[in-house]
Simulated scan of single mutants.
Amino acid sequence: MKNLHFTGVFFLSLLSGCGGNNTPSNVTSPGDEKTAKEEILNLGADLLQNKSPLRGFNAYLDGFHFYNGNMYAQMEAHHYVNQLNEDLYQAIIFDGNGDKAKIMGVEYIITEKLFRTLPAEEKKLWHSHRYEVKSGELIAPGIPDIAEHELMEKLVSTYGKTIHTWHTDQQRTLPIGSPMVMMGFTADGQINKQMLADRDKRFKISTIGKRKNREDIPIHAIDPLANAWQKGEIRQFVISSKADSAMHKHQGIMKKSSN
């Protein structure tokens, strides 16, 4: 596979692309305004501190998620992506693309080569990207069509593991509640049509047009253990009022070793 960071077309796309600042955050959080002193400290930190881990987040993808086990709770997700190597990506997910956007969660993206190495139970936490790519629902705003098409050729056979920690679609003011495993759409008729139309209008694009443009992208069979929600196998976090079982196990081991 070609590494898109080093192809000429992708490099030019990064120089000319934009596609931001058209989607505000869903929530306004409580708290006092930053003081003048804090603004100065932040400016100094921005100029002086090294931020190497953030520099690799140089691609922007816009798509949609729903809560694993509840397809009717859907939201738009703005992914800022870092490619770690040829087979592994990591993304920070925001609820908008402006300077007030809130971090909703993270997504890890792997190629089918790595996905095949996962244990069966682990695979049930992951979703495929084939439909998202082929349907035109997943877009890379601000880059030329030829560069986006090449990027989608790479993503079409990948799998994502997504955790949301701030449920801004529910108009929460703070990141409260349990983290949630998220999924991606797999067929026509699942996504909220108005949500999709609103996205297309903001970015001045056509999902239908992108679907047609991607008809030539080849597809591979999806691993039957991915998208486990389709078979009624839901995986979610559970908040328990009891002490964590792992802690009890750890304490038991420590007690035995001290005897």
Results as ranks from 00 to 15, higher is better:
D62L: 07
D95E: 04
A246E: 14
I208N: 11
A221I: 05
W126V: 01
N21F: 12
E132W: 05
M195G: 14
E215R: 07
I163C: 03
K204N: 15
S258L: 08
S157N: 15
E33R: 15
I219Y: 01
F64S: 04
Q83K: 12
G20S: 11
I163S: 01
L43E: 13
R116F: 04
E233D: 08
N259Q: 12
G232M: 05
P179W: 06
K113S: 05
T162M: 09
I139F: 10
N3W: 06
G17P: 02
I103P: 04
T117K: 12
D95R: 01
L41G: 04
E76C: 05
T165F: 08
K256D: 12
Q83I: 05
G160A: 15
E121T: 14
L84W: 12
L196M: 15
M195N: 09
M152P: 00
Y108F: 10
G136I: 03
A45E: 11
L48C: 11
M247C: 06
R116A: 14
I139Q: 10
A140L: 13
E107V: 04
I40H: 08
M183T: 07
E122T: 12
Y60S: 00
R116I: 07
Q236G: 01
R199D: 00
H248C: 09
L196R: 11
S135T: 06
G177K: 07
T28Q: 09
G96Q: 01
C18T: 13
F10S: 05
E86F: 06
I234F: 04
L15W: 10
A246N: 14
G177N: 06
Y131P: 00
I234L: 05
I110M: 08
I205T: 09
D200F: 02
D244C: 15
N26Q: 13
A77E: 02
I205A: 06
L138D: 01
D216S: 14
N97A: 03
T158F: 03
N26D: 12
H5T: 13
W229T: 01
S13P: 01
I163G: 02
Q49L: 11
P30F: 06
Q190Y: 04
K193G: 08
L47V: 08
